[in-house]
């Protein structure tokens, strides 16, 4: 089962360059569904369930991941870049990145031996960083890289411990994987499954997708930040890895309808599905765009807690993923018939 997740995470797909992710998903859709790709690249899939839905329900996950885009190539062949989506300097310095054509670049840093006591421990900001592909001149670099080319973290997918996985792009290939898994089983009711583009640069794909689908209800499946780390205060942990699906009541982009939040918690309780509240008003996701689409949509977000999100090595617990799948399955049926 994790082979599919492994492949999904390994495919490159920074915002605006989701094609390869979409191609993979299309290739793995069941035969009993209809799909189309819209102008921005959103993949919209409709699947009939056991019953005709009273309400139009949309499930969404985003295909794009954070990465880097080349903005300048200097005379010595170093590439300047800006991040696509939010990436902090600490998870970039000293790592390698990979371009679509296989070119590998290095994010170097001035050796610690050459830093002064006063700057000890300080990282350069991303605008001071550069990608080193071993080129000796601008012309040399330009034989393999052009302005506007995008790169991703050059990290493999790996299991961690008994239940966890470590990879780039768990945000939100976890959600894509969940949708694919639900699509490949018999669903309780008709529903739209939407794989969106450009979430990381401002929820852009979800806004146009929701406009077209015009759902009554939407469930966003996301990887959200888990800060259950040593030295973190309890109230700032957001959610705890291993404690189940994390359901949001509010984040920086959305106020979730209380009755939907309560419905999710109640369903989980009734069916013994591990669930937790996403406790901090932090982050945002496609729900922020979906709830404002058309005449308005009632939304819910069900999260897989991810540690070290937006790095090349985010970590998720597959038991939480399983809870997300179980809860979403029930929510789909419930919202279709509310």
């Amino acid at each position: 089962m994790t082979d599919m997740l492994r492949t999904l995470c390994t495919i490159d797909g920074t915002s605006g360059h989701e094609d390869a992710v979409r191609d993979y998903i299309i290739a793995h859709l069941p035969t009993d569904c209809e799909h189309r790709t819209d102008a921005l690249g959103n993949l919209i899939v409709f699947k009939k369930g056991k019953s005709r839905a009273k309400n139009r329900v949309m499930l969404a996950a985003h295909m794009d991941e954070v990465g880097m885009i080349v903005t300048h190539i200097d005379a010595d062949g170093y590439l300047k870049f800006t991040t696509v989506g939010g990436i902090t300097p600490g998870v970039l310095a000293g790592r390698t990145v990979r371009f679509a054509n296989g070119t590998v670049g290095v994010l170097g840093i001035k050796p610690i031996h050459l830093t002064s006591k006063s700057e000890e421990g300080d990282l350069p900001s991303t605008d001071k960083m550069y990608i080193d592909i071993g080129a000796v001149s601008k012309e040399d670099a330009e034989t393999v890289v052009a302005l506007g080319d995008v790169a991703v973290f050059n990290e493999a997918f790996m299991p961690l411990g008994e239940h966890k996985v470590c990879s780039k792009a768990l945000d939100d290939r976890m959600g894509c994987f969940a949708l694919l898994q639900l699509l490949n089983e018999e669903t309780s009711a008709d529903a739209y499954f939407v794989f969106t583009v450009q979430e990381e640069i401002g929820l852009r794909g979800a806004s146009t997708a929701a406009f077209q689908v015009a759902p009554d209800y939407a469930i966003v499946l996301e990887g959200t930040t888990a800060a259950d780390l040593p030295d973190a205060q309890d109230e700032k942990k957001v959610c705890i890895q291993g404690n189940g699906a994390a359901v949001s009541f509010m984040d920086r982009s959305t106020l979730y309808p209380p009755k939907l939040y309560k419905l999710a918690m109640q369903l989980a309780k009734d069916h013994n599905i591990p669930v937790q509240t996403k406790t901090m008003v932090a982050g945002g996701n496609d729900a922020g765009a979906i709830h404002k689409a058309g005449a308005g949509v009632q939304v819910l977000t069900v999260n897989v807690p991810c540690r070290y999100i937006h790095s090349g090595s985010s970590v998720a617990d597959m038991r939480d993923f399983d809870s997300v799948i179980e809860l979403t399955r029930l929510l789909l049926g419930a919202l279709a018939d509310v």
Partner: peptide
């Protein structure tokens, strides 16, 4: 034993 070193999420920074 494979492992990952912790990283402080942006909301805590």
């Amino acid at each position: 034993i494979p492992a990952v070193i912790i990283s402080t999420p942006p909301h805590l920074l």
